[in-house]
Design a protein around this nucleic acid. Structure first.
Lengths: 138, 138
DNA sequence: ATCGTACATTGGACAATGTCTAAGTCAAGA
DNA sequence: TCTTGACTTAGACATTGTCCAATGTACGAT
């Protein structure tokens, strides 16, 4: 994620303190914060950053493909900085914990032509559900 | 869906006019309404039905497994009456149209043990994304 | 057939998440 | 350093969902 700011500058983005802080918050593996969580963490580094900026910036990062938007539970969307390497998600149905996972094979290939209804299928998003070690033992 | 009311009675549910109307609205294949869409359609048959009843009833139908809850886009959840036969969803990224589809194989089998992080994996939900015939030709 | 009661429904307040706008601020090129 | 257009801000507003106290009603018991 350290070079995200460089990539953004290459796209003509202005490098503001707000964008720097948001990029820092989104750094790491298995990071899947909601917009408000990103905002909370950003506020602790830059107290006057506004919710609107966080929403705007996340939306822009998603639309240029630097961040993935994940809707695992119909509640708030979560933002995943690991957009450069394809992966899927494993979610605990009890506590909501999320891990990035890499299944074998290509799910799109498993959809037969006669099940495509004339759609141009671009990709597939897989959400595995189960119980995390903590919740399974409780 | 015609026998849904019978199954509900078997579970000790009271058969109210409201529940009957909601069951009627949810009848059919490729039905994926949001709660408010269900409410709108129900209102046209039973004008005084309230939003709270629709939300309550949908929530109960989901918790007993008669209806599936689908979060395809992080907006409103959609409700799928085809809970008895396993299937996945194909969504148009442009207009949001949804079809039920039946891929080959079992996606859970494609997740290697070393990618499970100690989770007890119960099932997998696959969302195929692409363009529907209308949007693809436009 | 009617009655009593536990269950269902209602409306409206509230909560959570997300969007929009007008006005002020600032990064970066000239 | 100046200028300017992009960025940020605060807060109003929109959408989706939840909760609660008051009211209504389905259905077994009488």
């Amino acid at each position: 994620m350290s070079d995200l700011l460089e990539r953004l500058r290459g796209r003509g983005w202005r490098l503001t303190a707000q964008r720097r802080v948001i990029a820092e918050v989104l750094d790491g593996d298995h990071v899947h914060y909601t917009a408000d969580e990103v905002h909370d963490k950003a506020v602790s580094r830059l107290p006057e950053i506004s919710r609107a900026t966080v929403y705007n910036t996340l939306g822009e990062l998603v639309s240029i493909g630097e961040v993935l938007e994940v809707a695992t539970d119909g509640r708030a969307k979560r933002y995943d900085p690991n957009a450069h390497r394809p992966h899927q998600h494993l979610v605990c149905s009890r506590c909501g914990a999320i891990r990035d996972v890499h299944p074998r094979g290509n799910p799109v290939a498993d959809l037969p032509a006669e099940e495509r209804f004339g759609f141009v299928v671009q990709d597939a998003e897989v959400t595995y559900r189960g119980l995390c070690p903590n919740c399974a033992s409780a």
